[in-house]
Design a protein around this nucleic acid. Structure first.
Length: 292
DNA sequence: CCTGGGACCTGACCGC
DNA sequence: TGCGGTCAGGTCCCAG
């Protein structure tokens, strides 16, 4: 479930609570939680034990902790329902506790990976020369990365033969955007989710990118978006940006700009929320790829 | 190559 | 009360 702002909130929690600590013992309680670690749970636990954790980093929705004394990292993805929690050692196990990391110190807390739907997980990977776990080399920089290349993104967008929301969710083009913030940015930009990317002018795509950044920064300032206790920071607390959403989840409620009831449309096994007046569907165009 | 559709999971909720 | 259908914030893999 979590998108970039929620993952960043978690990263900051890790930076504060586990930075510099040495791993004492690792328990893998569900094999799916380490399915991206091909050598399996026992290998994951053995290779992680004894290492000192460095400062947590993030690209898009991926998080990783470089090991301070080695050339590899613990990579994490929260999937749809994953949580990384720093809990007192004596706190009862969560129902969906999948991995426990104890530390070799006297602070009395441990790191827990909890995940109801098991789409997320942890794994160990060698770092590339630029300090990125090798398996996420294909993930694009995210829009809050100072080195994100706006011009390259806009150019790539125009070359795609797809629709704008699909492009926003394509993590190899721009990372960190998920279903909520895609709908929010499109609403702010007054763009329908099915607008062909090739029809976006440079000013339009620049404006859209600006809205993506604005909505993510605003969500970050509110501690992220959360509708229930499924998404929380490392201390188990929810963010409150859900109160500021303009599009996502607002079916039949009035558009905050024009008052027209918002609509929900099934879209790629999920939903798209939009204002039918502010975000007009694209006119049926000539089939893409047809030449005169 | 690129694009779109389905698979992978558990649980909550709704109507019958 | 139970049952079946739908929905949920993501990513990967494969067919075309």
């Amino acid at each position: 479930m979590p998108e970039l702002p929620e993952v960043e909130v978690v990263r900051r929690g890790l930076e504060r609570w586990v930075d510099g600590r040495t791993v004492g013992e690792v328990e893998v309680l569900h094999p799916r939680a380490v399915r991206r670690h091909p050598a399996g749970g026992a290998d994951f636990a053995a290779r992680l034990t004894g290492h000192r954790l460095g400062t947590a980093r993030r690209r898009g929705k991926y998080l990783w902790i470089p090991l301070a004394d080695s050339g590899f990292s613990v990579l994490g993805h929260l999937g749809m329902s994953g949580q990384l929690l720093v809990q007192p050692e004596n706190a009862p196990d969560e129902k969906h506790l999948r991995i426990r990391v104890r530390f070799d110190d006297a602070l009395g807390t441990e790191l827990r990976f909890v995940d109801q739907r098991t789409f997320g997980g942890l794994s160990l990977h060698d770092n590339t020369p630029d300090g990125l776990p090798d398996v996420i080399a294909h993930i694009a920089r995210d829009p809050l990365d100072p080195e994100f290349d706006d011009a390259a993104f806009q150019a790539a967008l125009r070359l795609r033969r797809t629709t704008v929301k699909r492009a926003l969710l394509d993590q190899s083009l721009i990372s960190g955007v998920g279903n909520i913030y895609a709908d929010e940015a499109l609403w702010r930009a007054r763009l329908h989710y099915e607008r062909p990317t090739a029809s976006l002018t440079r000013p339009r795509s620049a404006e859209l990118l600006g809205h993506v950044r604005d909505v993510m920064n605003a969500a970050l300032a509110a501690g992220g978006t959360s509708f229930d206790s499924l998404y929380v920071n490392v201390n188990g607390e929810s963010g409150y940006f859900d109160r500021s959403l303009d599009a996502y989840g607002r079916e039949d409620e009035p558009c905050r700009r024009c008052g027209t009831p918002m609509r929900r449309r099934p879209w790629m096994n999920r939903s798209s929320y939009f204002c039918p007046r502010c975000q007009r569907p694209p006119r049926a165009a000539a089939p893409v790829g047809v030449r005169a």
